[in-house]
Design a binder for these strands. Sequence first.
DNA 1: CCTGCGATTTGCT
DNA 2: GCAAATCGCAGGC
Length: 192
Amino acid sequence: VSAPATAARRLGREFFARPALEVAPDLIGCTLLFDGVGGTIVETEAYDESEPACHAYVGRTARTAVLFGPPAHAYVYLSYGIHQLFNFVCDAEGHGAAVLVRAIEPHEGVHEMWARRPAARERGGLCSGPGKLAQALAIGPEHNGRSVLAPPFEVLARTGQPPAIVAGPRIGITKAAELPWRFLAAGNPYTS
DNA sequence: CCTGCGATTTGCT
DNA sequence: GCAAATCGCAGGC
């Protein structure tokens, strides 16, 4: 992937300055790179302050401040005391919303991913889950609040035809579990 | 292959 | 004090 070719595909702030429910399916098929390591986004979930599964539901706190900040920034937090989860902050500044990236199809820097995730048994397990993804790309709490429009982040628009997308309920939540706000690339084997 | 459980920390009640 | 946007391993079939 040459630098001039990727520069033209780079997503801008306006892409993320929309409701998370619009951004989440639009991200399927886009490319996420962190320090040159990453691949094609194949699974996302939308979260919005209007529903209780979203951390922003409780209002602005020290933890959720980033969610209410400007869009196109990273929201990274610790889940179950062990796993880092990476989200794109979405919607207008002042509105708490985000899209969780749950899985990518590995393309760039696959060797680094294997080094960081020796527990993965096959290529399909490198980035097939939000915790795995953050570990494979070496995204951590130090990146919370960072802009995704500048290095080490690089987010690229898809090329070619839009992929087939299927929606379903979000994973691992107990509140608002009925909302079909999870989006997957149809038939893709690199999902969680 | 599939199911069940422990890990480990933070934020909010 | 407890629940949490998960993962990997052990053990059983």
